[in-house]
């Protein structure tokens, strides 16, 4: 499996990750090498094998639908890059 520059551009867009023009070639090479390693999986016969989603085959635990956390908005927003009136600020989305 080999990826080219345009594949990397597409994946990087899906991941919302800036990859510069100058890095594209090298990244494509690295990712292709990793996919070649991963390709070894095809040697395994997995017909009828149940995929393992959890090491202990446990079901996700559910809790009562009750409020357990207190409101700490200001505390948690103190680490945010930009906030105003309790809201997170981002560049204008709607003109």
């Amino acid at each position: 499996m080999s990826l080219d520059r345009s594949d990397v551009e597409k994946i990087a867009h899906l991941a919302r990750l800036a990859v510069s023009e100058s890095e594209l070639e090298a990244v494509a090479g690295d990712l292709s090498n990793i996919l070649n390693l991963v390709e070894q999986m095809s040697s395994a016969d997995t017909v009828g094998v149940t995929p393992m989603a959890h090491p202990l085959h446990m079901a996700q635990r559910l809790r009562e639908d009750q409020v357990t956390e207190t409101d700490q908005r200001e505390h948690f927003q103190s680490t945010a890059p930009a906030t105003e009136n309790g809201l997170y600020l981002v560049p204008r989305v709607i003109e």
Partner: peptide, 14 residues
């Protein structure tokens, strides 16, 4: 081809 296959092999390893 990838994630599902990997989860199946995980079962084999386990």
């Amino acid at each position: 081809a990838y994630y599902l296959k990997a989860q199946q092999i995980r079962k084999l390893i386990s």
